[in-house]
Each structure stands twice: as C-alpha cells, then as structure tokens.
C-alpha cells in the first residue's frame, strides 16, 4: 500500500497537512510551537543529509544556525539592509564559513571530525558572546524586524508558520530529489565505505564538502527564519547543547530518512510541552524517553513506523490469505 503511493505526491500531501494544521488546532499558542518545530526540522533535514546519508558527523551545526540568524539580524537591524538582502547575506556567509571549515575538517574521520566540528561550534559561540559591539553580547541582540518579502510582512503568527512550513516542504522536496540523484548515490556510497567509493571513481572529498555546505545552508536558512520570527537572538541558543540536540533529533527520527528528520525534530521540539504537566520530573522523563527510544526503536521513529507498517500489512495479508 505504502509503495503504491507515488513518491512525488507525499511532499504535496505533507504540505497540505501542514497548511491545514493551524485551522484544526484548539489554541493558537500551538502555532508557535509548530513554527519552532518547522524551523528545527529544517536544520535536522540538512544535518540528516550529512550524517544519515553521507555518514559525516557534525557537532557544530548550531553554529551555522547562529551565523545565519546573527548575520541577518545584524545587517537588517544595525545596518538597515532590506530583509531579503540580509537573509541572502546570512545564508551566503554560513556557506562560506562551511567551506572554510569543511575543507580541512572533512579530511578527519569519526570522532576526530566530531571533535573538530565541536571545537568550531564552541569558537563561534564564544565569538558571538565576546564581540559585544556587534552582537550585543551574552544578553542578546534585540529589535530584529519581522520578515518582509515582496512588500508583504509576515506579521501574524499563522502567516509566519505558513512561511516556515512552506520552506520546509520545499526543502523536503529538494532533499528527496537530491537523494534520488547521482549525488545521493555517491553520498550513500561514501557512508558505506569511503575507500570503496573512491575506488569506484567517486570524488569523495568534493561530495562530502558539497553536502556539508548544503547542510550549513539549510541551518542558516532556519537561522534567518528564527531570528526574524523571535525578533531576538542570544548566543546561548547556538551552543554545544543545541548541536547535540540536533544530532539527537536526527538519530531519534531515523538516520537516512527524510521524513524521520522531520518527525524527530517535531517530536523532540514539542516533547517538553507535553512533559510540562509532570513539573519537576519532566527532565528525567525526557532522558528516559531518549534511552527507551534507542533501545526499542533502534531505527528511530522512521524505522519504527516502517516496522509497524510491515507488521500491519503482514496481518492484513494474512487475513486476506485465510479468507
């Protein structure tokens, strides 16, 4: 049944469902939660291309998120650039930094790569903290304007949510195309065995760099959306802690799964909202959920859903067989 669904249709369906969501929600407050879910999903989507498909870890992706957010915030606020220009500059800056750090870092493997990206993330956060004259320092940067594109300001939360969900749907479609392409096959080959991929004539370092920059661009776009949504950015949001959370979202959603990335981000972003009723022990339950998910759903949410679908279809097939 799942296979029967034409692949190209599912982003459209997802888009439709995401667009309909605010109209069925009981409280408009949830729209803000969903906006943050969409923004996080965008970063996780990019990180999943890097980690899930190409097998390269990054413990510093919060930095690209932060670079996009801060660059756009500072350029549009302090220097009064038009917002589209600030956005573009933020994304380009993140891409340029990703290129600079990616060239030497991607020569490293496994834990050494993790360490290098972690170090990069720490350095960026300290820079955001200490360049007070530019970034406003640890207490944050205030007064970022709401996003305006082509003369339309996304003033209401609902319109902003549509913008974020739309961007996410676009990113999903783009990622699916990428994965199905020659590049996608090359990335998976690198994940399985870099040596074998090289032997088969795959230009591994170039592909790795490409996907690293692409994932940084996803993160920076999310950062831009985030800054112009909140109207405020502070270095604490872009630290090591958030980088680790992003990795957790990728793995919990399901490695090498586009929908898993979206589900993982949405699940972990909204989980604290559900756990709030537990008051003091919410943080404990959060940790426990992580451990239990990994024990019982090693393939993440996506893997779990696939397994469930398989069991169900077997059941149905079994019934059909008996009948």
């Amino acid at each position: 049944m799942r296979r029967a669904l034409p692949g190209a249709l599912s982003p459209v369906l997802f888009f439709a469902a995401a667009m309909a969501a605010p109209f069925v929600l009981s409280n408009q407050y949830y729209v803000s939660v969903m906006t943050l879910c969409a923004i996080n999903a965008l970063i996780v989507l990019g990180l999943n291309l890097l980690l899930g498909f190409a097998g390269q870890i990054s413990l510093g992706h919060a930095a690209f998120f932060g670079i996009g957010a801060y660059a756009s915030a500072i350029l549009t606020t302090t220097y009064a650039w038009p917002i589209w220009a600030g956005m573009l500059a933020g994304v380009c800056l993140a891409a340029a930094v990703a290129w600079l750090i990616g060239v030497p870092a991607l020569k490293l493997h496994g834990h050494y790569l993790a360490m290098a990206t972690l170090g990069f993330g720490v350095i960026v956060q300290i820079a955001l903290n200490e360049t007070t004259w530019l970034t406003g320092g640890p207490s944050g940067f205030v007064g970022v304007p709401r996003l305006t594109l082509f003369g339309y300001t996304f003033a209401s939360d609902r319109s902003y949510y549509f913008l974020c969900a739309g961007t996410l749907a676009l990113a999903v479609a783009l990622s699916r195309n990428l994965i199905a392409s020659r590049t996608g096959r090359a990335l998976r080959a690198i994940h399985t065995s870099e040596g074998a991929a090289t032997a088969m004539g795959v230009h591994t370092s170039r592909y790795k760099l490409f996907v690293f920059i692409l994932s940084a661009v996803y993160a920076a776009v999310a950062g831009v959306l985030y800054a112009h949504y909140l109207g405020f950015v502070a270095p604490a949001s872009f630290g090591f802690h958030f980088s680790v959370q992003l990795i957790t979202m990728v793995v919990l959603g399901g490695m090498a799964s586009i929908w898993g990335a979206v589900a993982g981000a949405a699940f972990l972003t909204s989980l604290p909202e559900f756990l709030r009723a537990l008051e003091n022990i919410d943080i404990l339950v959060y940790g426990l959920v992580l451990v239990l998910c990994m024990i019982y759903l090693p393939g993440g949410l996506a893997g779990g859903a696939a397994k469930l679908a398989k069991i169900l279809s077997n059941r149905i097939a079994g019934h059909a067989g008996r009948a």
Binding site: N27, Y29, L36, D157, L230, A234, A236, S237
Partner: peptide
C-alpha cells in the same frame, strides 16, 4: 532557555 521563555510568553498571552 530563550525559546521556552518566548513560548511561555505566548501561552500566557494567548
């Protein structure tokens, strides 16, 4: 956490 503060503010208002 800044994000959670913003969400909490939304909740209080809405």
């Amino acid at each position: 956490d800044v994000n959670k503060a913003v969400l909490a503010a939304e909740k209080l208002l809405k």
